[in-house]
Design a protein around this nucleic acid. Structure first.
Length: 838
RNA sequence: GGGAGUAUGGCGGAACUGGUAGACGCGCCGGAUUCAAAAUCCGGUCACUUCGGUGGUGUGGGUUCGAUUCCCUCUACUCCUACCA
């Protein structure tokens, strides 16, 4: 052990040894407590980015720490391998999506390995592999059988020039990203999963997820959007154009029923459709709305049809209105302008009556329609017949009673959560195992015929879909022999990511899962990923787990026990005077400002998330090459708390690198240290080890890092001052080696070996701290009137009189006290002594 | 419009359930080493100060022996969501 630490040699050496010794390979061990650490798996886009480095470093700290704490740690890795970029590559690089994807996986796997993550690579999976996706085809068939999967018409973005369906992210300002053509909405029959039938369970189970960030739970709860209210049946009067006699609406404010002055339906409501067939003006209006496209202004069409108020002998007009949404509630509402802002705006525009029915009890102010501000507060009912005088919450119940008694309404709970549309008109995805027979029937592919393999493309199609592969698409029905065509849509790629964490338990099994393994490993103890997946991925995974449970595949109800959402990796940006982004690495700073490499002035931009378009990405591989993986890891963990954004800076990386070398030098010095006297206990070091552990458990890695800095500084001090015996130092260094291991594993192994320790450091036991090693003498602050006057060495068990006496010995205390009258003394053992004087 | 969150030195950030504000790191300053530099090591670093102290955690107030921490007011910024009846 001498000379400079060479990360290039050390890192590849230990990666090789770990692999040869298979130390991260895990199996189920019933006598050992398991710990499942999972980071969100990457999309194989080509190469890893700093976001990945941060994500997997955080997870690796937890995984290595828990292993040293004696857990059977499960830490697998895989690839979210289906998706659009592979198809784009097929277009721009003329590559087969499969070849492109597998090539990227190979490259990125090596990059991840060069980071030294403690992953069980034997469990690696790629979702585009038939061995993976055949199981989700089975799930789909089971869901179809049980009514959980169904088909209905739904809108897609259609590019009329490229003649293709576009994903939302391919529509930019209403135009196709490639053709630039105006995108039109087109109705297609598509597959859906009934996520909505799990709305209530998905909502209530959020309460059990106490190791999830509150923020994420609130976001999911809002997304599910439970609201309680009533359905009310109105009867239609004087209508001679429709067969319908009734119209049902949903409301959360049944108490305001006497303030109803109009009823409105969505342009997509079936009644609107019927009206438009008889009323050409209505049809014109509806067509107009469809081209208006996300306008905020409220427009309506008066159908001249009237509605009877359920409790009054009163007729109110029926409108078709653009602000009524078809996919929430029933697509029909009653408008109470006095107590709903939207209704008020609409009423003022179309000169409809405004009747106040709730009087606020909190604000004195009377409702005033000319201010065009609806009264939303609770209060007491007025102008409301049998409800007058009631609190409006009470009135809700009374109205419901009466509605139910008269058979014109009922209590109803609504959810915003909609069913999950899983059809994608894409090639690079999992084929949906359905046949459409020539007699018109929909036939699920038989289980024995799974998987339905993706056809191989043999042409460089500008936008490939399975629809174009006729020899694949045209087939026969296996039971009748009739002609049939395959479903040519593929699954949304969220389908694959909704169950991969279960598949890791038995990644090569012919069965989708082996229950005893799943029951052992699941749920995931610690899931780590970006906040951008707070809603969709996490909600779909929770839904999928529940659905698989109900189909008998698994026994758990929630997949992720603990969740951590990490912040982004950011970097400064620059723009030249033309407004183009300039790479930070080519910018020089001098007295006159910032210049690019041709000497032209550049403007300093904001600090933003690393992205190719802003040219502010830093390539992990070049960092690993120059500084090493341990430096990259250490930098990722220093300073910034993991949940916040981390700004990438060159000086930050350099200083992380410096510390790696400092640890090495310190340990080197310690190895050659001699001193026979044992002058000091190792209290300080034990205290710091305790802090490092606690901070890892709490995901405060930046604080653990600070503790390690202190530990190394203390170690140097102890050696410089010859304050400890050689044996003492030896133990301190050995413990240092262990506590830095989760952060900088290669360096720690290298020191471990140099110290002559047995086995791998990765297999070592985390130091046990006994209580009596922890310092209980503190420097107790002494205050007078809340102002600090000095410190006194004291133990927690010291008596008040003793501490006061010691305090009075302090000159600063003595002087301030003088002979002033002491009013009160506050003594909190181990915390503070405060003397209150006049 | 609705919801969530943040605000502490030149910078990133510490401060456990109210108890020494600024741990640790960066930067900066000084010193050692060196022919010199880099690297490294040691020390200093909130502001003001008559060297006794005084002020200080976005603003203004409150509770308390004591407030970055709890309560109220205002301001700024960030994120999510959005005509959800």
């Amino acid at each position: 052990m001498s000379g400079r630490y060479n990360h290039k040699i050390a890192e590849s050496k230990w990666q090789k040894r770990w692999q040869e010794a298979n130390i991260f390979k895990v199996e189920k061990k019933d006598n050992k407590k398991k710990y499942y650490v999972l980071e969100m798996f990457p999309y194989p886009s080509g190469k890893i980015h700093m976001g990945h480095v941060r994500n997997y470093t955080l997870g690796d700290v937890v995984a290595r720490y828990k292993k040293m704490k004696g857990y059977n740690v499960f830490h697998p890795m895989g690839w979210d391998a289906f998706g659009l970029p592979a198809e784009n590559a097929a277009i721009t690089e003329k590559k087969n999506p499969a070849d492109w994807t597998y090539g990227n996986i190979k490259y990125m796997r090596n990059q991840l390995k060069s980071m030294g993550f403690s992953i069980d690579w034997d469990r690696e999976l790629a979702t585009c592999h038939p061995g993976y996706y055949k199981h989700e085809q089975l799930f789909f068939l089971k869901m179809y059988e049980s009514g959980l999967a169904y088909k209905k018409m739904s809108e897609v973005n259609w590019d009329p020039v490229d003649k293709t369906v576009l994903a939302n992210e391919q529509v930019i300002d209403g135009r196709g990203w490639r053709s630039g053509a105006l995108v039109v909405k087109k109705n297609l029959s598509q597959w859906f999963l009934k996520t909505s039938s799990y709305s209530d369970e998905l909502l209530t189970d959020l309460d059990s997820l106490d190791m999830w960030p509150n923020k994420v739970k609130i976001m999911q709860s809002n997304w599910i959007g439970k609201s309680e209210g009533a359905e009310i049946i109105f009867s239609l009067v004087n209508n001679n154009i429709l067969e319908e006699k009734n119209l049902k609406v949903f409301t959360t404010r049944p108490d305001t029923i006497f303030g109803a002055t109009f009823v409105a339906i969505s342009p997509d409501h079936q009644l609107a459709n019927k009206i438009s067939k008889k009323d050409s003006a209505a049809k014109k209006f509806i067509d107009q709305i469809k081209t208006m496209d996300s306008e905020k202004t409220k427009v309506g069409y008066n159908t001249k049809i009237f509605i009877k108020h359920p409790f009054l002998d009163k007729k109110i007009p029926l409108f078709i209105a653009n602000f009524v949404l078809m996919d929430y509630g029933l697509g029909a509402i009653f408008g109470c302008p006095a107590h709903d802002q939207r209704d008020l705006e609409f009423a003022l525009k179309y000169d409809l009556d405004v009747i106040q029915v709730v009087k606020s009890t909190t604000s004195e102010e009377k409702f005033n329609k000319t201010k065009s501000k609806a009264l939303l507060e609770s209060g007491v009912m007025i102008n409301s017949d049998f409800l007058n005088g009631l609190e409006n919450e009470k009135a809700k119940k009374e109205v419901l009673k009466k509605l139910e008694k008269e058979g014109v309404g009922n209590k109803k709970t609504n959810y915003k959560l909609r069913d999950w549309g899983i059809s994608r008109q894409r090639y690079w995805g999992c084929p949906i195992p359905i046949l459409y027979r020539e007699d018109g029937s929909v036939v699920p592919v038989q289980e024995k015929d799974l998987p339905v393999l993706l056809p191989v493309l043999n042409q460089n199609n500008p936008s490939p879909t399975t629809d174009e592969v006729n020899e694949w698409k045209n087939t026969t029905c296996p039971s009748t022999g009739m002609k049939a065509v395959r479903e040519t849509d593929t699954f949304d790629t969220f389908f694959e990511s909704s169950w991969y964490f279960l598949r890791y338990c038995n990644p090569r099994s012919e069965q989708p899962f082996i229950k005893k393994d799943v029951n052992y490993w699941l749920p995931v103890d610690q899931y780590i990923g970006g906040i951008e997946h707070a809603i969709l991925h996490l909600l779909y995974s929770r839904f999928f787990t529940k659905a698989l449970r109900d189909l008998g595949f698994v026994d758990i109800s929630e997949p992720f026990k603990g969740l951590f959402t990490q912040g982004m990796v950011t970097h400064k940006t620059f723009k030249n005077l033309k407004g183009d982004w300039v790479e930070p690495s080519s910018v020089l700073e001098n007295k006159e400002g910032h210049l690019d490499n041709s000497g032209k002035k550049v403007k300093v931009g904001k600090i933003e998330k690393m992205s190719k378009s802003k040219k502010n990405v830093v390539n992990p591989s070049s960092i690993i090459d120059v500084y090493g993986a341990d430096t990259a890891r250490w930098f990722m963990l220093s300073d910034s708390p993991p949940e916040r954004d981390l700004e990438w800076t060159d000086v930050g990386v350099a200083s992380a690198h410096k510390f790696i070398n400092k640890i090495w030098d310190t340990c080197h010095k310690a190895k050659n240290y001699t001193n026979s006297k044992n002058l000091e206990k190792r209290n300080k070091f034990d205290n710091l080890i305790k802090s490092v552990s606690e901070n890892i458990e709490k995901f405060h890695f930046n604080k653990s890092v600070a503790n390690i800095y202190e530990y190394v500084n203390e170690l140097n001090k102890a050696m410089n001052e010859k304050k400890a015996s050689a044996n003492n130092i030896k133990n301190i260094v050995r413990d240092l080696c262990i506590i830095i291991h989760p952060f900088t594993p290669h360096l720690s192994e290298e020191i471990w070996e140099a110290l002559g320790c047995e086995d791998f450091c990765a297999n070592a036991k985390w130091p046990q701290i006994t209580k009596d090693n922890i310092v209980n003498t503190i420097e107790l602050p002494i205050q007078i009137n809340g102002k600090l006057k000095g410190l006194v060495s004291a133990k927690k068990e010291d008596k008040e009189e003793f501490v006061i006496k010691k305090a009075k010995d302090l000159p600063s205390v003595n002087k301030t006290l003088n002979d002033k009258e002491v009013i009160k003394i506050i003594y909190i053992p181990g915390k503070i002594l405060n003397i209150v004087i006049k």
